[in-house]
Simulated scan of single mutants.
Amino acid sequence: MAAYFFASPVDVDIKLEGEEERKKFDLKLEKEKAVSCPIYYDGDNVAGQVTVRVRDGKKLAHEGVKVEFVGSIELFYDRGHHHEFLSLSQELAAPGEMRSAQTFDFLFKNVEKQYESYQGINVKLRYFIRVTLSRRIADVTKERELWVHSYRMPPDSNNSIKMEVGIEDCLHIEFEYNKSKYHLKDVIVGKIYFLLVRIKIKHMELSIIRRETTGAPPNQYNESETITKFEIMDGAPIRGETIPIRLFLGGFDLTPTFREVNKKFSVRYYLNLVLIDEENRRYFKQQEITIFRIPEN
């Protein structure tokens, strides 16, 4: 008897209008599975069809069918609570009985999608369609993920970055990057100048670090991950030497910079320059850069 209560009496299928023509994002799930999600933008309509099929051909009494478009933030340290910043709802069917398959159209028009989708270490920002068939015993729900990208206008000011690394009377290095704000397919161009070298440097590396901050004090969590690391010099430099840097961002799994999204999380990027001497001492300098998304051709 128990099996009857827990088996869903209906199959629910959600089809998104025009999804074949949309670009796709592969959303990673647990156990190395992935689901392909159509990409939407701020202001796009979210439309489609919901098909409900009754199993076994029996009639099914229900208390209404509704469809929702939801945007939510899930913090992994607070698993029981989903913070919904967007919730739109439409009724598809009034209470009644269902004997055969029924298809319902839905349309959420010009939806403001305030934030970009994000899947991180401690936080997930997701958008999804949720269909609920209400019943007295147990509701039947089905969800369908979609992915949202946001374009931001390129920043008006984009100054170059100039920094110094110095150890008194031992080492003096200047380095500069051509700008401080980059789009996701951009190239970081820079130069490193050795003005004073009195310690034996073994090699030098440059890395991009992503730092995810979730929550607020005292329940604040910081997670840093190295997106890429590459050696830009092997062997000892001499005074007056210049080393060029070219780093193509297009090959890495980057997101835009996010600051204080819904007061729940931030994602920032840093360029980290590390020098290692022959005694394996490390000298490093970190600089934040801003990453933004522009429309692709």
Results as ranks from 00 to 15, higher is better:
residue 123 V to A: 14
residue 197 V to G: 04
residue 248 F to H: 14
residue 33 K to A: 14
residue 28 K to N: 10
residue 20 E to F: 08
residue 72 S to T: 15
residue 178 N to F: 05
residue 70 V to P: 00
residue 164 E to A: 14
residue 208 I to Y: 03
residue 37 C to M: 06
residue 223 E to W: 04
residue 98 M to T: 09
residue 146 L to P: 01
residue 67 V to Q: 07
residue 65 V to F: 02
residue 24 K to G: 02
residue 285 K to Q: 11
residue 241 E to N: 02
residue 133 L to R: 05
residue 126 R to A: 13
residue 226 T to M: 12
residue 293 R to I: 00
residue 134 S to Y: 11
residue 140 V to P: 01
residue 103 T to I: 00
residue 90 Q to H: 13
residue 117 S to R: 10
residue 173 I to K: 04
residue 127 Y to M: 04
residue 127 Y to L: 11
residue 140 V to E: 09
residue 191 K to H: 08
residue 60 L to K: 02
residue 262 N to I: 05
residue 11 D to Y: 07
residue 99 R to V: 14
residue 276 I to E: 11
residue 226 T to C: 15
residue 271 L to R: 00
residue 238 I to S: 13
residue 259 R to E: 08
residue 268 R to A: 10
residue 86 L to S: 01
residue 289 I to V: 12
residue 269 Y to H: 15
residue 30 E to A: 12
residue 261 V to K: 05
residue 102 Q to V: 15
residue 218 P to Y: 00
residue 11 D to I: 14
residue 15 K to F: 03
residue 297 N to W: 04
residue 220 Q to M: 13
residue 240 G to N: 12
residue 281 R to V: 06
residue 82 H to E: 14
residue 248 F to M: 05
residue 271 L to F: 12
residue 13 D to I: 12
residue 197 V to A: 07
residue 110 N to K: 12
residue 6 F to K: 02
residue 212 E to A: 03
residue 137 I to D: 08
residue 162 K to G: 10
residue 266 S to C: 05
residue 56 D to F: 13
residue 152 R to E: 15
residue 16 L to W: 02
residue 209 I to P: 01
residue 220 Q to S: 06
residue 184 L to C: 12
residue 243 I to C: 01
residue 254 L to N: 03
residue 273 L to I: 04
residue 238 I to E: 09
residue 142 K to G: 02
residue 251 G to N: 14
residue 279 E to T: 15
residue 198 R to I: 01
residue 68 E to L: 06
residue 65 V to A: 11
residue 183 H to V: 07
residue 164 E to Q: 13
residue 214 T to Q: 04
residue 47 A to T: 07
residue 230 F to H: 09
residue 290 T to E: 13
residue 1 M to S: 08
residue 77 Y to R: 11
residue 150 S to Q: 12
residue 139 D to H: 09
residue 254 L to E: 04
residue 114 Q to F: 04
residue 222 N to M: 07
residue 203 H to M: 14
residue 78 D to L: 09
residue 36 S to T: 15
residue 134 S to P: 00
residue 111 V to D: 08
residue 83 H to S: 10
residue 165 V to C: 14
